[in-house]
């Protein structure tokens, strides 16, 4: 469904560092209903990728939609995608608009 978002963009982040290195805020039942990136830490995989930006709103993680997911659940989905050994990357579908 996220593919229908007109302004969305798929970003593949390779696991090039021991951490992903993003901070997110938001989730269902908060003022920010989808997780938004608020920090990108230097030296993390996201920073090394160079394409994820502060302000990006995350619509999907490896094809799993985050709409309707509360903050902790969304954070868990992202953390598990990073831990998953079978994949050396995470695909984020993001949009710059809320």
């Amino acid at each position: 469904p996220g593919l229908l978002e007109p302004t969305s963009c798929l970003i593949r982040v390779s696991k090039t560092a021991p951490t992903l290195g993003i901070a997110i805020e938001g989730g269902a039942n908060t003022r920010q209903p989808l997780p938004r990136i608020v920090t990108i830490q230097r030296g993390g995989s996201a920073h090394n990728c160079g394409k994820l930006k502060v302000g990006h709103v995350i619509l999907e993680v490896n094809g799993t939609g985050l709409r309707g997911k509360e903050h902790r659940e969304a954070a868990r989905i992202i953390a598990e995608a990073f831990k998953l050994k079978e994949k050396d990357y995470i695909d984020f579908l993001v949009t710059e608009f809320n």
């Binding site: 290195g21 989730g27 908060t30 903050h71 954070a75 953390a79």
Partner: peptide, 15 residues
């Protein structure tokens, strides 16, 4: 719109 304004802020998680 009104309802949206009353929603709480989110916590922040570092990943």
């Amino acid at each position: 719109r009104e309802k949206r304004l009353t929603l709480p802020p989110s916590e922040i998680t570092l990943l």
